[in-house]
């Protein structure tokens, strides 16, 4: 008999939290109804993910969500799921769920969000051990053909970087070593043959690493980061005629397969 499974059978020991029906709710040792009831929602999220209570950090993250990840453009890949759900007359939550799921993307979204911060932590350790920034960045580019947090699909420049820094400075953020490192890498890349520039996820990674957030916490905190941009896309499409969202005529298929007409079984 497997020991672990037997040990856990009808036995989930947790210090994370629980609901005691009709009585109380706890999260990380606090009573939600009496101790956390005044928290703003992002303060509560920060506390749930990290165990930290910091209105300033919660406000910083909230601003990042507005500035960086809540663009209500239905052409953006994750938003488009909500718009497609709306035009196909699915439900709002299913549209948002699909959009949320695909936000774990490579060219944008959760992989760059988590990977960008991981990159800063990794090279920071190596720099501390005496390695050269240029060598580290080149090695990363060579190995992975890109660096999370740098470069951007569709356009080169990221219009979010300036407003994000301005907002961060208003909360006394942006002066730490990880933010500096993020921009040192930007400088190196801009002057190299790669020509990549820092994008918002690279700046956010630096800012939040300076606040002591680690990549795993950063990833979990960012789970819902796109949601406020997703929902309007569903609403908009659901108010327009059925099927009206960027309809495709058959000629929109660029077929590159066999031209031969084949018969099954022959």
């Amino acid at each position: 008999m497997p020991d672990d499974l037997q040990k856990y059978e009808d036995n989930w020991e947790t210090s994370m939290g629980a609901w005691f029906p009709g009585e109380k709710v706890t999260l990380r040792g606090k009573d939600v109804l009496t101790e956390l009831n005044d928290y703003r929602w992002l303060e509560y999220l920060l506390f749930s993910v990290t165990g930290r209570y910091s209105p300033r950090l919660a406000r910083l993250i909230e601003g990042m969500w507005v500035i960086c990840t809540s663009f209500p453009d239905p052409r953006l890949w994750n938003n488009r799921i909500a718009a497609l759900a709306g035009t196909a007359r699915s439900t709002g939550v299913l549209g948002s769920a699909g959009a949320l799921a695909i936000s774990e993307a490579t060219i944008y979204g959760l992989k760059p969000i988590k990977g960008g911060m991981d990159f800063l932590y990794r090279i920071s350790e190596k720099l501390y051990a005496g390695e050269e920034l240029g060598d580290l960045v080149s090695a990363e580019m060579k190995k992975y053909r890109g660096i999370y947090g740098y470069g951007r699909p569709v356009v080169d420049q990221d219009e979010r970087v300036g407003p994000l820094l301005t907002f961060a400075q208003s909360l006394n953020a942006g002066q730490g070593p990880f933010t500096k490192l993020a921009f040192d890498v930007d400088d190196y890349l801009a002057n190299s043959r790669y020509k990549y520039r820092i994008n918002a996820s690279g700046v956010v990674a630096g800012l939040l690493a300076d606040e002591g957030i680690d990549p795993e916490q950063h990833y979990h905190l960012a789970t819902l980061t796109f949601t406020a941009g997703v929902i309007p896309c569903f609403m908009d499409a659901s108010k327009k005629p059925e099927g009206a969202f960027f309809p495709l005529r058959t000629s929109r298929i660029n077929y590159e397969g066999t031209e031969e007409l084949r018969a099954w079984g022959k």
């Binding site: 009808d10 036995n11 989930w12 210090s15 209570y53 300033r56 950090l57």
Partner: peptide
């Protein structure tokens, strides 16, 4: 629902920063 299956354990990692 595993009504009796959950045991809440003490939590001691709370930090207040601000």
């Amino acid at each position: 629902f595993f009504g009796n299956g959950l045991k809440l354990m003490p939590y001691d990692q709370v930090s207040d920063e601000d």
